[in-house]
Amino acid sequence: MREFRYERADDVDGAVALLAADPDGAFLGGGTNLVDLMKLGVATPDLLVDVRQLTSVEVTGLPDGGLRIGAAVPNADLAADRRVRERFPVLAQALLSGASGQLRNRATTGGNLLQRTRCGYFTDVTKPCNKRAPGSGCGALEGVHRNHAILGQTLDGPGACVATHPSDMAVALVALDAVVQVVGPDGERGIPIRELHRLPDDDPSRDTTLRHGELITAVDVPVLGFASRYRKARERASFAFALVSVAAALRVEDGVVADVRLALGGVAHAPWRATAAEAALRGQPATEEAFGAAADAELAAATPLRDNGFKVPLARNLVVRSLLDLVEVAR
């Protein structure tokens, strides 16, 4: 672990200024991901700016019925919030399916969004990894990759990367069209969450479109108004990352799909909004057959690796099952 300075700023602008002046600095949330990566030598900041006291720990109502989630709200508190449980069960369920009680108490909303991949080559500084050490190669591509991506990977070249984004919460927020509020050296902006996480393209070292020094201050979740749920498949019942997860919301009118939101976790470098499936479903009868066809439409683009082909039928089943369950809930 590299030696580092630890600072607390008086306000958001002060924190942003501290980081803007230090290209090797990082914000510190609950530290449950960043500190682990520092111990492993994967993250080597020379400055930590603790932002837990700077951003809000409150969930507040927005005029349209949506919610504003302060960046420092602990995952546990967010999952327990009555409004979240009632209006956005998909979000509460996603949070509760992640990590453990202890971690959720500590982890923050901002930190959760920006947690890094669990790829075993990324977390081992003695191994090749284009994300950690650009140009060193992708260890996972031909290595151990049972839990890696099946969609949107970069399969060759110096940008090769087949990692997944590990957050459950982010998958739900992507389905909910959340907007991430940030303050940076150039001022404030709101980033639609689908534009926050990126695919590896030719630069897997960048997980997101955030610029250095940009601080997440809040996440806005617009009103949804229909049933939603989160379903996560994993290799043990608790305390395991998703093999595949599905965040789904469905509104059915007269047996026909009036509105649908679908996002997949565990399948790509970013939470995967299943736009092809959504398009295939709108206006279709809410039947198992239509749900299967929609899942197939999405997964047609899948390029599974040697050992993770199972994720394709698993994702299909989870999409179909989640939508059928939502039809059931609506009845």
Binding site: R118, G120, Y121, D124, V144, E235, S238, F239, A240, F241
Partner: peptide, 21 residues
Amino acid sequence: DARLGHYVNHDLAEYHIATNA
């Protein structure tokens, strides 16, 4: 890892042991 020769899942987050659940 057959080529790099190491145990890749070398921590308790990735080497899964049954939980109570």
